[in-house]
Simulated assay, not measured.
Amino acid sequence: MKKLFTLLVVIALMASCQTVRVSQDYALGTEFSNYKTYAYYKKGVDEAKISELDKKRILRAIDTEMAAKGFIKSENPDVLVSIFTDSKERVDVYNNNWGWGFGYGWGWGGGFWGNNMNNNVTRTTEGILYIDLIDAQKKELIWQGVGTAPLKSTPEKKVERTNEIVKEILQQFPPMPKN
Results as ranks from 00 to 15, higher is better:
A27Q: 12
T162F: 07
V79R: 00
T64M: 08
T124P: 02
E89T: 10
G110I: 02
P155V: 03
F173I: 01
R123W: 09
K36V: 09
G101T: 07
D46C: 05
V146P: 01
I62M: 00
F112Y: 13
N118L: 15
V22M: 08
E47V: 10
W113Y: 15
Y35N: 04
L28D: 14
E168M: 13
K43V: 14
S33F: 04
Y40L: 05
A68R: 05
L129F: 05
E168R: 14
T85S: 06
S51A: 07
Q172A: 13
G105C: 07
T154K: 01
K88S: 12
Y130H: 10
Y38K: 06
P174H: 07
N120I: 15
K2N: 12
Q137F: 08
I142Q: 05
A15N: 00
W113A: 10
A136R: 03
W113R: 11
L129Y: 08
L13K: 01
I134R: 02
V10K: 03
M66K: 01
T125G: 07
G70L: 01
E47I: 11
K2G: 08
Y38V: 09
V121R: 11
A61I: 00
Y41C: 07
F112G: 08
P174W: 09
M176A: 13
Y104K: 12
L129I: 07
V91P: 00
Q24V: 08
P150F: 05
L151W: 10
S87C: 07
A61L: 04
I142V: 10
K158Q: 15
Q144L: 14
